[in-house]
Design a protein around this nucleic acid. Structure first.
Lengths: 331, 331
DNA sequence: CTGAAAGCGCTTACAG
DNA sequence: CTGAAAGCGCTTACAG
């Protein structure tokens, strides 16, 4: 396999009658005489010259690459985030490299190191996740987005998840529900812990309220199976609080499969407010978190830290908002 | 910004007491004495050494990077494809770089050239799309996946879309529908053209069948607005054939918004069979195309071509399958 | 089997 | 403002 012929800065220089370093200066904004600049740019345009990223990142101090760790890309939550991050990065002339669940955490870290990323965004960190710690351990700037880790020495951005749980509980209790089940997200995730805590706190304050908790792992299939079992069982709850929208969809569908009317016999509340949730066929009552904003702030914090590693760590908590729709009703 | 200290092959060599080129040979499978190999690997393991991709792709003939052009990542169709492609690439030790709609086609091509991709997968080519042509023009191997281009000199993989259209028409006609509307995908896309053609062909063979065509652009919002207008109008059809599932969801939701019962007053057929379509709340009658298989075959063809550019071009057409669910009923 | 050397395409001091 | 030169971290002939 011969490498296909690509125009290099040396060829541009030769044709423009300048030194190769002058081409570099023109492209990177060094001081160049207007006439020289014009001549170089003309040749650059003629060949639509694109400087090699490999060479650039090899010699420069930056690769212009940001790693984004997203385990499950099929959760509709994440494409929205990816898009928001790409937008910010693209404005800065930077690129994004994805680490998904096709590879192990180990392989993911190796990948990020080989690619020489300037920083990494973690979107789904778990308490026992070694990847974020080890990445930071290699001196790579890290930001934790959406899910956070207590005492982790890095910038972090998340929604006000305890309040999200409280708002959900308040809503259901206000409708008169007392036999409630909570479909929990991944045990090691901060979001599940915080949303669970907020919900439980409000529940405890209510008279005669009984809370059952089941594991949904933030996964459609897991939640679907768990909710079907629950609904087919003896002590069917009158309301369900799901730690994310995807599990709420699973609950809605499980209810349909079991012939349980929503919201007549069962109320369902989610968390996230993914675009899907507004669909008439779904119309999910949920708690909105500012997905795009979280992604955007996360990338901005990371870029700021890459610029200045000495900045004090910031931990942003963004407000959530209750969104009442038609999957909830009186007990 | 100082570059953070990274272990290099020179340091590994020094500590192992060998030449740097020997380290390279150990890592890339050259001939090395067992004892030498052992010593080198020991040091490699000690530092968890990861060779720089930048250096490697600068000097080598391959970057190990494959560009994947996906315009709209939020269509649930695409994450499934990305995952399938990542899986194949990861097995080959290769990586994927995404080009989405945060950048223009122009910027996308520039990006791919700067990154020195070994090849590019186009998943949403349009007839007037210059990007695929120009990419190939730069000598970069290209494969067209899902959407194809007639007479394009490259490997192509698609579903049997004409048959998809025919199956949908057959189903609706068989249920007695005669006043039918077709919600069309992007005008310049092969899928919309082929699915439309297949559907029209069958329609023409049916007595007294009237077909209205409206533009949905493969976009949820566009299709939603168009279907609401259609349903609110005077000559409401009894059935809808949508060129993809996302527009069918829009149609389902638009019907709900207009108070039109599905399938009682309106039947809806989609195309794709994205996982979502099987949800009880959606339960869309559709025509399945083998998403993952298309993605997989596409990447395999591309890798084969990179290996041997002289291979004759292949054009694979994969079978589709009708999936009857509950959004369709008798006229 | 192994080492010394060239070179990939750039950026970045360093002179002038 | 501009050029000559060093060097980023590798792979790949080329000797031995």
């Amino acid at each position: 396999m011969a490498r296909r012929p690509t125009v290099t800065s040396v060829q541009i220089a030769r044709e423009a009658g300048v030194a190769q370093s002058t081409v570099s200066r023109v492209l990177n904004g060094g001081s160049v005489a207007p006439e020289t600049r014009r001549r170089v740019l003309e040749v650059v345009a003629k060949y639509d010259f694109q400087p090699s990223q490999a060479a650039r990142s090899l010699v420069g101090s930056r690769s212009g690459l940001i790693g984004v760790v997203i385990r499950d890309l099929t959760n509709p939550f994440y494409p929205v985030m990816v898009k928001a991050m790409e937008r910010v990065l693209h404005e800065q002339g930077m690129r994004l490299t994805l680490v998904t669940d096709v590879m192990t955490a180990e392989e993911g870290l190796a990948q990020l190191r080989r690619e020489g990323v300037d920083g990494v965004v973690f979107t789904s960190a778990l308490q026992d996740e070694p990847l974020a710690h080890r990445t930071a351990g290699h001196g790579i700037p890290v930001v934790l987005v959406h899910r956070t880790l207590e005492d982790f020495p890095a910038d972090q951005v998340e929604a006000d998840n305890p309040t999200a749980g409280e708002l959900a509980a308040e809503h259901l209790l206000g409708l008169g529900h007392r036999r409630i089940a909570m479909v929990c997200g991944l045990a090691g995730s901060s979001t599940a812990q915080q949303r669970g805590r907020g919900f439980r706190d409000r529940m405890r304050a209510a008279d005669g309220a009984a809370l059952t908790e089941i594991d949904g792992d933030y996964d459609y299939d897991t939640a679907y199976a768990a909710v079907r079992t629950l609904l087919a069982g003896p002590e069917r709850p009158t309301a369900l609080y799901c730690h994310n929208d995807v599990m709420a969809y699973a609950a809605l569908n499980a209810a349909a499969a079991e012939g349980v009317d929503v919201p007549g016999e069962l109320s369902v509340v989610g968390c996230d407010d993914v675009p899907l949730s507004a669909w008439e066929r779904i119309d999910l009552t949920t708690v909105r978190q500012p997905l795009e904003r979280i992604a955007q702030v996360g990338v901005e914090l990371l870029l700021g830290r890459i610029e200045d590693p000495e900045l004090p760590h910031r931990h942003e908590v963004l407000p959530v908002e209750f969104v009442g729709r038609s999957t909830t009703g009186p007990a």
